[in-house]
Design a binder for these strands. Structure first.
Length: 227
DNA sequence: GCGACAG
DNA sequence: ATCTTGTCGC
């Protein structure tokens, strides 16, 4: 599942593409079931050498054991623009996913889904392009606001758009007393289910195991790719 | 107009 | 994202 041939190269094209895809997001659906496979994806860059490396790691939902790993190396095709991150990261991510021998039942992304200025963060974008179920788990609140969730693991508070007041995601406490992560729906899953999946994937550390594994793998692959 | 701004 | 030392704590 490589990226479409007419992948946007300018901000204007990217904005038009987001407007088209946002209508296709399905913000409802089940969480993980017994025996399903979850993929974590992440990207690392070397701006100097114009190199990007993506990693996709497949884990068993119940044991969180690694089932399969894949990486993809490419050229940086889009600058970092807040709100347009998908256009920078997805080409390599989709190549890495295509290299997996099994199809994930859910993909956990490092970033947002519906919690996005135009409701199409990279997780939702990836979901619509691939048809896969996706969730976004970000490390910072971007432009949204939230109240501090309770100190215990599992506590959460709405992540809201200050303009519209709508709940676009949730600040979720995965570790007691540690800064929350920011969960939002990607595609074909509901918000409650997204939060439950995030907690199940992060039994020990702040970030989901999927994200930790993918982050570690793409860094190692980048180091190996450059001299 | 200016600053902030997922990774 | 990436550049970077030491340090506090389980």
């Amino acid at each position: 599942m490589p990226v479409p041939a007419d992948w946007p190269t300018t901000e204007a094209e990217a904005l038009a593409e987001q407007q088209r895809l946002r209508e296709l997001v399905e913000p409802y659906g089940p969480g993980l079931a017994e025996g399903e496979l979850v993929a974590g994806v992440d990207v690392a860059y070397d701006d100097e050498r114009d190199v990007v490396v993506a990693a996709a790691v497949l884990l068993d939902q119940a044991s969180l054991e690694v089932v399969e790993e894949a990486t993809a190396v490419g050229r940086i095709s889009f600058p970092y623009v807040p709100g347009l991150l998908a256009f920078r990261e997805l080409p390599a991510v989709m190549d890495a996913l295509a290299s997996l021998h099994q199809t994930p039942d859910l993909v956990v992304c490092d970033g947002y889904g519906l919690a996005h200025p135009r409701r199409l963060g990279l997780a939702s974008h990836l979901g619509v392009l691939t048809g896969l179920r996706t969730v976004g788990v970000a490390k910072t609140p971007f432009t949204f606001t939230y109240e501090q969730p309770g100190p215990e693991r599992g506590a959460w508070a709405p992540l809201s758009d200050a303009e519209t007041g709508e709940e676009v995601g949730r600040a979720v406490r995965t570790r007691p007393g540690v800064k929350p992560v920011f969960v939002s729906v990607g595609h074909r899953i509901g918000l409650d289910e997204s939060v439950a999946v995030t907690l199940a994937l992060a039994p020990t550390y702040r970030l989901p195991e999927t994200t930790r594994r993918a982050d570690s793998l793409c860094r190692r692959a980048l180091a190996a790719a450059i001299g």
